[in-house]
Design a protein around this nucleic acid. Structure first.
Length: 805
DNA sequence: GTTCACGTAATTTTT
DNA sequence: TTACGTGAAC
């Protein structure tokens, strides 16, 4: 069946090759950071199609982000195009004319990539539901149609708030909608229904959460809407209850690949199981002919347990799927990719050492394939402003002294989004181009959400959340009291709000003087609906913009802000056009799904040469030659919520591991001794425990930098600093040398604390100093206490005594 | 019905 | 420090 010497096995190491060539049955690939995981995935798909003659439409590949999906598609297309170029033109891809290349790409698209299902769990199963949700039979009789809306977090929360205040008549201050929403989301991600929650939950509060969950589900159905979690949970229920549909998808998807398997939750796991075994117990599932499930992950990079991900699913993979099969066929179900092609050995040693402090993990190491590189540099700063300046200082030195490095090669990573602000200020001051990933999503801008709400309402008039959003936008003189009266009527009659709004009789009798606006509105919607079948998504966006009066209102306002909004809306038309180009059967439902499920990180264009700012979470799967990791402080990273919970602390440590392993060449760590949390309050902070878990010999320490006070004075000298920037690069380099020299010229006055000293703490007992951070006034110590682990303490405050030997 | 001003709460991480 | 929700004035 298989031709030997597949070109897709060339250039792979033994483990990668084994993974790519695996055909029948389950396989778990433990893939450390930078071990060529995406390479294995794309080569495998190409190999399955070309060597094992697998039909592309029977392949399902699940990624964690849309961006990863796109990258996988692109790389796969290129692999296949190169092969086809050799076969059909007899020459390498790079020597082909542009027209020939395009011709090949088109052919690959038509015959292969169009057929593949590659995407996130949410996107793929939303697609499945667009086929089959009308066949779903809910035990409580709830129904949805294929035109369902997808609610984002805000929509979901307002629905829950309505239930809490209106239906349950509870005080939203005591029974917070946000927390309830979180509890419900958690339940859904563990495959639990309201009834399961009733059984599990003890006490008043738990029962209220379960009741809210039940009502929320009912409300979603009434709006013909699903939240993100439903996109996974409803398919599970549907596949469990409907044997015909289950068999169809089971027979269709013969080869399933899951990336970032450590971050799957139990609902996603259930989906995989249903598709792979057609609902049978996985351990007794035998029929692996021409069928595989191939999961790739790294338990050390599991960072989404707050979203109900559970890396024990990864740890249990071998036990779950076909243990007997393994014995019968003498086939191993595990392969480890441990050779790292990304980072210097210094960076890897640091990461390996850090992660070895975790107890719960699969044993695995990263073997370096590259040179030692430079030491990691650690900088202590006075506060977050000084920290930002120190980071920028670093980047400027690099820019000046390494011609091959571009701004686009550098990334600044942080624990929380709020930390970006101080850094952005500094970047602006030094006129360094940058991009913040993961801030406000394009699709979350007010004007965009307004327009999308119109579109959602057009295809799904039951969607009252969308209706309420646009009913009086732009202003039509429809106020709160009118809306309340109409809503009351709708809920008494148990019909969607739209049916009241669109009934002229009802409007006249209920609305009084806002009747006119309401009539205009329902006429508008009716007219727009008449274009639904004949117009493309982009045309519909344009139509809504014009006919609703949204555009003319913005033009009339004439402010800069209105102009910005107008531009964004134009961008939405472009987004719709792009969607139409990219998808075969473009329709409005599809466009709205794409909009709902896209994230800011997906839109990051790697082409532009800018410094990247993002959270550690969004950095997963990426790599940069230069990485700056800021805010390495107890309470910030690790987050204060994890400080007294060992398993959350382990998750924070994994997050740190992810951060460190993003760096290819140069890694810089920063922490501040004082940080403005919110408002004007400054809070002292001590170095992160993670810093003490990186071997000291890999780190070149502390360059003292001028503090916040000096910088604030400098703000007035903005012009001067700009001039400074124009100066030749040597001055910047001198500055750097000075910085380093300062470190060595000033021996620490707090000399009495040094590494390996034995100390006694009044409550922790005897310990040994493993790290000294800073010096003089700003000193803190990492001390390893017997049986207590390592603590970071400020010796000026902590009851510590030096023990002489 | 609309607008504006004031008070209060918030900071983990995201499909 | 900002962003949001509430309430009272227009």
């Amino acid at each position: 069946m298989k031709e030997s010497n597949s070109i897709f096995l060339n250039g792979l190491n033994e483990a990668q090759s084994y993974a790519v060539d695996h055909f029948h049955g389950p396989l778990l690939v433990i893939a450390g950071a930078g071990s060529g995981k995406t390479r294995a995935l794309t080569h495998r798909i190409a190999h399955l199609i070309t060597e094992y003659k697998v039909d592309p439409s029977s392949i399902l590949a699940v990624t964690f982000t849309n961006k990863a999906a796109r990258e996988m598609k692109d790389r796969l297309e290129l692999l296949l195009a190169k092969r086809l170029s050799n076969i059909s033109h007899g020459k390498p891809w790079s020597t082909l004319q542009v027209a020939e290349q395009r011709q090949i790409r088109n052919r690959i698209y038509r015959e292969i990539s169009r057929e593949l299902w590659i995407g996130t769990f949410h996107a793929l199963f939303a697609r499945l539901l667009r086929f089959d949700i009308d066949k779903f039979k809910d035990p409580e009789g709830l129904t949805w149609t294929r035109q369902f809306s997808i609610y984002d977090e805000t929509d979901a929360q307002s629905l829950i708030k309505e239930i809490v205040t209106q239906d349950l008549q509870l005080d939203p201050k005591r029974f917070e909608p946000k927390k309830v929403r979180w509890a419900i989301s958690n339940a859904k991600n563990q495959c639990l229904l309201p009834d399961d929650l009733v059984k599990n939950e003890e006490g008043q509060r738990g029962r209220l959460v379960a009741e809210t969950y039940r009502l929320y589900r009912k409300a979603l159905a009434a709006n013909n809407a699903l939240d993100f979690d439903d996109l996974l949970l409803i398919p599970v229920q549907l596949l469990q209850q409907n044997e015909r549909i289950r068999s169809y998808w089971h027979n269709r998807f013969k080869h399933i690949l899951v990336d970032e398997y450590q971050d799957t939750n139990w609902t996603q796991y259930e989906l995989i199981k249903l598709l792979v075994t057609n609902g049978k117990e996985p351990s007794s599932f035998e029929n692996w002919n021409n069928r595989s499930v191939f999961v790739v992950g790294d338990a050390d990079q599991s960072i989404y347990s707050f979203r109900a991900a559970d890396f024990r699913i990864l740890m249990g993979f071998q036990k779950d799927f076909g243990k007997e099969n393994q014995d019968n066929k003498n086939e191993s179900t595990l392969v480890k990719l441990e050779e790292n092609y990304r980072s210097t050995s210094t960076i890897l040693d640091a990461a390996n050492s850090l992660i070895s402090n975790n107890k719960e993990r699969i044993d695995k190491i990263l073997r370096a394939t590259r040179g030692e590189g430079e030491p990691i540099k650690l900088t202590r700063c006075d506060d977050e402003i000084a920290e930002a300046e120190a980071v920028i200082h670093r980047l400027r030195i690099l820019d000046a002294s390494n011609p091959e490095l571009n701004w686009g090669d550098m990334a600044i990573l942080y624990r929380t989004n709020a930390q970006s602000r101080a850094i952005e200020d500094s970047l602006v001051r030094w006129s360094i181009p940058y991009i913040v990933v993961g801030g406000l999503r394009f699709y979350d801008r007010r004007e965009i959400k307004d327009l999308l709400a119109y579109l959602r309402l057009l295809i799904n008039p039951s969607d009252s959340i969308s209706l309420l959003r646009v009913l009086n936008v732009p202003k039509r003189g429809i106020g709160k009291t009118t809306v309340q009266r109409l809503s009351d009527a709708a809920s008494q009659l148990k019909i969607p709000l739209w049916e009241v709004v669109s009934d002229p009789e009802a409007v006249r009798s209920l609305a009084g003087r806002s009747a006119k606006g309401l009539l205009i509105f329902s006429e508008l919607i009716n007219e727009l609906q008449s274009h639904l079948l004949s117009s493309s998504p982009a045309e519909l966006v344009q139509l809504v913009l014009e006919k609703s009066g949204y555009l003319s209102e913005l033009i009339a306002t004439g402010t800069d802000e209105a102009e910005e909004r107008r531009r964004n809306l134009q961008e939405l038309v472009n987004a719709a056009l792009q969607y139409q180009e990219e998808s075969e059967d473009a329709n409005l439902e599809g466009f709205l799904s794409t909009a709902a499920l896209s994230s800011d990180a997906d839109n990051k264009d790697t082409a532009s040469n800018r410094v990247t700012l993002m959270t550690l979470h969004s950095s997963k799967g990426l790599e940069f030659p230069v990485v700056c990791l800021v805010g390495m402080e107890q309470g910030l990273f690790p987050s204060y919520r994890s400080l007294d919970d060992p398993s959350s602390l382990e998750e924070e440590r994994r997050l740190c591991y992810v951060g460190l392993t993003r760096a290819k060449e140069k890694l810089f760590l920063f922490h501040a001794t004082e940080r403005r949390m919110w408002g004007g309050m400054r809070e002292p902070s001590i170095a992160s425990i993670f810093l003490s878990e990186i071997p000291e010999e890999l780190v070149q320490g502390d360059i003292p930098l001028s503090g916040g006070t000096t910088l604030r004075r400098e703000k007035n000298l903005d012009r001067l600093t700009r001039i400074d920037r124009q100066e030749n690069k040597r001055s910047i380099l001198n500055e750097a040398e000075n910085g380093v020299r300062r470190k060595y010229s000033g021996p620490s006055p707090g000399k009495k604390w040094s590494v390996n000293d034995k100390v006694e703490h009044s409550s922790f007992g005897e310990g040994k100093i493993t790290h000294v951070f800073g010096s003089g006034e700003k000193i803190s110590l990492a001390i390893k206490f017997a049986g207590m682990g390592t603590k970071i303490l400020d010796p000026r405050l902590a009851p510590l005594k030096l023990i002489d030997e």
